[in-house]
Simulated assay, not measured.
Amino acid sequence: MLLYHLVFPTKYRKKVFTEEVCERLKEICTEIENCYEMHFMEIGMKKDHVCFFWYRQ
Protein backbone atom coordinates (compact mmCIF):
# COMPACT_ATOMS: atom_id res chain seq x y z
CA MET A 1 0.00 0.00 0.00
CA LEU A 2 1.30 3.45 -0.90
CA LEU A 3 0.25 6.51 1.11
CA TYR A 4 0.34 9.98 -0.41
CA HIS A 5 0.05 13.41 1.17
CA LEU A 6 -0.24 16.25 -1.33
CA VAL A 7 -0.73 19.95 -0.65
CA PHE A 8 -1.92 22.30 -3.39
CA PRO A 9 -1.78 26.03 -2.57
CA THR A 10 -3.62 28.54 -4.71
CA LYS A 11 -1.69 30.98 -6.86
CA TYR A 12 -0.38 33.82 -4.68
CA ARG A 13 -2.20 32.13 -1.78
CA LYS A 14 -5.44 33.85 -2.75
CA LYS A 15 -8.40 32.81 -0.61
CA VAL A 16 -10.67 31.18 -3.19
CA PHE A 17 -11.98 28.01 -1.55
CA THR A 18 -15.55 28.63 -0.39
CA GLU A 19 -18.00 26.07 1.05
CA GLU A 20 -19.51 25.49 -2.39
CA VAL A 21 -16.10 24.91 -3.97
CA CYS A 22 -15.11 22.53 -1.16
CA GLU A 23 -18.27 20.45 -1.56
CA ARG A 24 -17.82 20.22 -5.33
CA LEU A 25 -14.17 19.22 -4.92
CA LYS A 26 -15.19 16.39 -2.58
CA GLU A 27 -17.74 15.20 -5.16
CA ILE A 28 -15.04 15.18 -7.84
CA CYS A 29 -12.71 13.21 -5.55
CA THR A 30 -15.45 10.61 -5.03
CA GLU A 31 -15.78 10.24 -8.81
CA ILE A 32 -12.00 9.82 -9.09
CA GLU A 33 -12.08 7.11 -6.43
CA ASN A 34 -14.64 5.18 -8.47
CA CYS A 35 -12.59 5.40 -11.68
CA TYR A 36 -9.20 4.50 -10.19
CA GLU A 37 -8.12 2.11 -7.48
CA MET A 38 -7.56 4.73 -4.81
CA HIS A 39 -9.19 5.99 -1.64
CA PHE A 40 -9.07 9.48 -0.12
CA MET A 41 -8.58 9.07 3.61
CA GLU A 42 -8.82 12.79 4.28
CA ILE A 43 -9.36 15.96 2.27
CA GLY A 44 -8.49 19.09 4.21
CA MET A 45 -9.22 22.56 2.93
CA LYS A 46 -8.44 26.06 4.03
CA LYS A 47 -9.30 29.18 2.08
CA ASP A 48 -5.91 29.23 0.35
CA HIS A 49 -4.91 25.55 -0.03
CA VAL A 50 -6.18 21.99 -0.16
CA CYS A 51 -4.54 18.86 1.30
CA PHE A 52 -5.14 15.32 0.10
CA PHE A 53 -4.20 12.23 2.09
CA TRP A 54 -4.91 9.13 0.03
CA TYR A 55 -3.71 5.64 -0.67
CA ARG A 56 -3.61 3.31 -3.57
CA GLN A 57 -3.78 -0.45 -3.27
Rank of each mutant, 00 (worst) to 15 (best):
L2F: 14
L2N: 14
L2C: 15
L3Q: 12
L3D: 10
L3H: 15
L3F: 15
Y4P: 01
H5P: 03
L6R: 09
L6N: 08
L6V: 09
V7Q: 06
V7W: 04
V7S: 09
F8K: 11
F8Y: 12
F8Q: 07
T10K: 02
K11C: 05
Y12I: 04
Y12M: 05
Y12F: 11
Y12K: 05
R13N: 09
R13L: 04
R13E: 03
R13M: 02
R13T: 00
K15Y: 14
K15E: 14
K15Q: 15
V16E: 04
F17K: 04
T18G: 08
T18L: 01
E19R: 13
E20W: 05
E20Q: 11
E20L: 05
V21I: 15
V21L: 14
R24E: 06
R24F: 06
R24Y: 08
K26R: 15
K26H: 06
E27K: 10
I28W: 05
I28D: 08
I28S: 07
C29S: 08
C29E: 04
C29L: 12
T30H: 15
T30P: 09
E31R: 11
I32P: 03
C35N: 12
C35I: 14
Y36N: 08
E37S: 14
M38C: 14
M38G: 09
M38W: 07
M38L: 13
M38T: 11
M38Q: 06
H39K: 15
F40W: 03
F40Y: 05
F40M: 04
F40V: 02
M41Y: 14
M41H: 13
M41K: 15
E42H: 09
I43R: 00
I43H: 01
I43Q: 00
G44T: 08
G44S: 04
M45G: 09
M45E: 05
M45D: 05
K46W: 05
K47F: 07
K47L: 12
K47H: 09
D48F: 03
H49T: 04
H49I: 01
V50D: 01
V50K: 05
F52N: 03
F52E: 00
F52G: 00
F53M: 12
W54L: 12
Y55R: 12
R56V: 13
